[in-house]
Amino acid sequence: MLEAVIVIPVVVLLTMIVVQYVMLYHARNVTEAAARDGLRVARGYQGTAAQGKTAAEQYLTDVAPRLLVARTCDARRSTATVVIICRADVASVVPFGSFSVTEQAIGPVETFGT
Protein backbone atom coordinates (compact mmCIF):
# COMPACT_ATOMS: atom_id res chain seq x y z
CA MET A 1 0.00 0.00 0.00
CA LEU A 2 2.79 2.43 0.88
CA GLU A 3 4.48 1.76 -2.47
CA ALA A 4 1.28 2.60 -4.35
CA VAL A 5 0.91 5.88 -2.45
CA ILE A 6 4.42 6.86 -3.53
CA VAL A 7 4.57 5.38 -7.04
CA ILE A 8 1.16 6.35 -8.48
CA PRO A 9 1.56 10.14 -8.07
CA VAL A 10 5.05 9.95 -9.57
CA VAL A 11 3.79 7.95 -12.57
CA VAL A 12 0.90 10.37 -13.08
CA LEU A 13 3.25 13.37 -12.94
CA LEU A 14 5.69 11.76 -15.39
CA THR A 15 2.81 11.00 -17.76
CA MET A 16 1.66 14.62 -17.57
CA ILE A 17 5.19 15.82 -18.33
CA VAL A 18 5.34 13.57 -21.42
CA VAL A 19 1.93 14.83 -22.59
CA GLN A 20 3.07 18.44 -22.06
CA TYR A 21 6.20 17.80 -24.12
CA VAL A 22 4.12 16.36 -26.96
CA MET A 23 1.77 19.36 -26.81
CA LEU A 24 4.75 21.72 -26.90
CA TYR A 25 6.25 19.88 -29.88
CA HIS A 26 2.95 20.00 -31.77
CA ALA A 27 2.47 23.69 -30.90
CA ARG A 28 5.90 24.45 -32.28
CA ASN A 29 5.08 22.70 -35.57
CA VAL A 30 1.70 24.45 -35.86
CA THR A 31 3.25 27.86 -35.15
CA GLU A 32 5.96 27.24 -37.72
CA ALA A 33 3.35 26.23 -40.31
CA ALA A 34 1.36 29.38 -39.56
CA ALA A 35 4.45 31.54 -40.10
CA ARG A 36 5.15 29.77 -43.40
CA ASP A 37 1.53 30.23 -44.50
CA GLY A 38 1.69 33.94 -43.66
CA LEU A 39 4.96 34.19 -45.54
CA ARG A 40 3.43 32.53 -48.61
CA VAL A 41 0.65 35.13 -48.67
CA ALA A 42 2.80 38.18 -47.85
CA ARG A 43 5.56 37.47 -50.33
CA GLY A 44 3.20 37.23 -53.30
CA TYR A 45 3.53 39.68 -56.16
CA GLN A 46 0.88 42.05 -54.84
CA GLY A 47 0.77 40.72 -51.27
CA THR A 48 1.09 42.90 -48.20
CA ALA A 49 2.42 42.41 -44.69
CA ALA A 50 -1.11 42.86 -43.32
CA GLN A 51 -2.41 40.04 -45.53
CA GLY A 52 0.39 37.77 -44.34
CA LYS A 53 -0.27 38.60 -40.71
CA THR A 54 -3.98 37.90 -41.14
CA ALA A 55 -3.29 34.59 -42.88
CA ALA A 56 -0.90 33.46 -40.13
CA GLU A 57 -3.29 34.42 -37.33
CA GLN A 58 -6.19 32.73 -39.12
CA TYR A 59 -4.12 29.56 -39.50
CA LEU A 60 -3.42 29.49 -35.76
CA THR A 61 -7.09 30.05 -35.00
CA ASP A 62 -8.24 27.33 -37.41
CA VAL A 63 -5.71 24.64 -36.53
CA ALA A 64 -5.13 25.00 -32.78
CA PRO A 65 -7.72 27.25 -31.15
CA ARG A 66 -7.45 25.62 -27.71
CA LEU A 67 -3.82 24.52 -27.75
CA LEU A 68 -2.39 27.96 -28.51
CA VAL A 69 -3.65 30.78 -26.35
CA ALA A 70 -2.57 34.44 -26.41
CA ARG A 71 -1.33 34.09 -29.98
CA THR A 72 0.08 36.97 -31.99
CA CYS A 73 1.80 37.32 -35.34
CA ASP A 74 3.92 40.17 -36.65
CA ALA A 75 4.76 40.78 -40.31
CA ARG A 76 7.33 43.02 -41.93
CA ARG A 77 7.78 43.42 -45.67
CA SER A 78 10.54 45.39 -47.32
CA THR A 79 11.27 45.64 -51.03
CA ALA A 80 13.41 42.49 -50.87
CA THR A 81 12.28 40.30 -47.96
CA VAL A 82 9.31 39.35 -45.83
CA VAL A 83 9.53 38.31 -42.18
CA ILE A 84 6.65 36.71 -40.29
CA ILE A 85 7.03 36.03 -36.55
CA CYS A 86 4.36 34.08 -34.65
CA ARG A 87 4.24 33.75 -30.86
CA ALA A 88 1.80 31.83 -28.69
CA ASP A 89 1.40 30.47 -25.19
CA VAL A 90 0.80 26.73 -25.03
CA ALA A 91 -1.99 25.31 -22.89
CA SER A 92 -0.56 23.56 -19.86
CA VAL A 93 -1.47 20.22 -18.30
CA VAL A 94 1.44 20.35 -15.86
CA PRO A 95 0.60 22.13 -12.62
CA PHE A 96 3.78 24.19 -12.72
CA GLY A 97 5.32 26.40 -15.36
CA SER A 98 4.10 28.12 -18.46
CA PHE A 99 5.23 27.36 -21.97
CA SER A 100 5.40 29.47 -25.11
CA VAL A 101 6.59 29.07 -28.68
CA THR A 102 8.03 31.57 -31.14
CA GLU A 103 8.65 30.75 -34.78
CA GLN A 104 9.59 32.88 -37.77
CA ALA A 105 9.69 32.54 -41.52
CA ILE A 106 11.79 34.68 -43.83
CA GLY A 107 11.68 34.77 -47.60
CA PRO A 108 12.23 36.94 -50.65
CA VAL A 109 9.49 39.07 -52.15
CA GLU A 110 8.20 37.83 -55.49
CA THR A 111 8.82 40.28 -58.30
CA PHE A 112 7.47 40.54 -61.80
CA GLY A 113 10.11 40.34 -64.47
CA THR A 114 9.86 40.60 -68.22
Score class of each variant (00 low, 15 high):
Gln58Ala: 13
Leu13Cys: 10
Gln51Cys: 03
Ala88Asp: 01
Gly38Gln: 04
Ala49Thr: 00
Ala56Ser: 02
Ala4Phe: 15
Leu2Tyr: 11
Arg43Pro: 00
Asp62Glu: 11
Gly52Arg: 02
Gln46Leu: 14
Thr72Ala: 10
Val7Pro: 03
Leu14Val: 12
Gln51Thr: 01
Val7Leu: 13
Arg77Tyr: 00
Val7Arg: 04
Ile8Met: 14
Leu39Lys: 05
Phe112Ser: 09
Ala70Cys: 02
Val90Trp: 08
Asp89Met: 09
Arg40Lys: 10
Val83Leu: 15
Thr102Gln: 13
Pro65Phe: 14
Arg28Gln: 13
Ala88Pro: 02
Leu60Glu: 02
Val11His: 08
Val83Arg: 15
Gly47Leu: 03
Ile6Asn: 01
Ala49Arg: 03
Val5Asp: 02
Leu68Thr: 02
Ala34Ser: 07
Met23Pro: 03
Gln58Glu: 08
Thr48Cys: 04
Ala70Trp: 03
Ser78Tyr: 12
Gln58His: 11
His26Leu: 14
Met1Ile: 13
Arg77His: 05
Gln20Val: 10
Glu103Val: 05
Gln104Met: 08
Ala35Gln: 00
Val19Pro: 00
Gly44Trp: 04
Ala33Lys: 07
Ile6Cys: 06
Gly47Glu: 03
Val101Tyr: 08
Ala35Ser: 11
Phe96Ser: 09
Pro108Asn: 12
Ala27Gly: 08
Arg76Glu: 11
Arg66Glu: 15
Ala88Ser: 07
Thr81Asn: 13
Cys86Phe: 07
Ile106Asn: 06
Glu3Gln: 10
Ile84Asp: 01
Gly52Met: 02
Phe96Asn: 03
Asp37Pro: 02
Thr72Met: 04
Gly97Thr: 10
Gly47His: 01
Glu110Trp: 06
Arg76Gly: 01
Ala88Gly: 05
Thr61Cys: 05
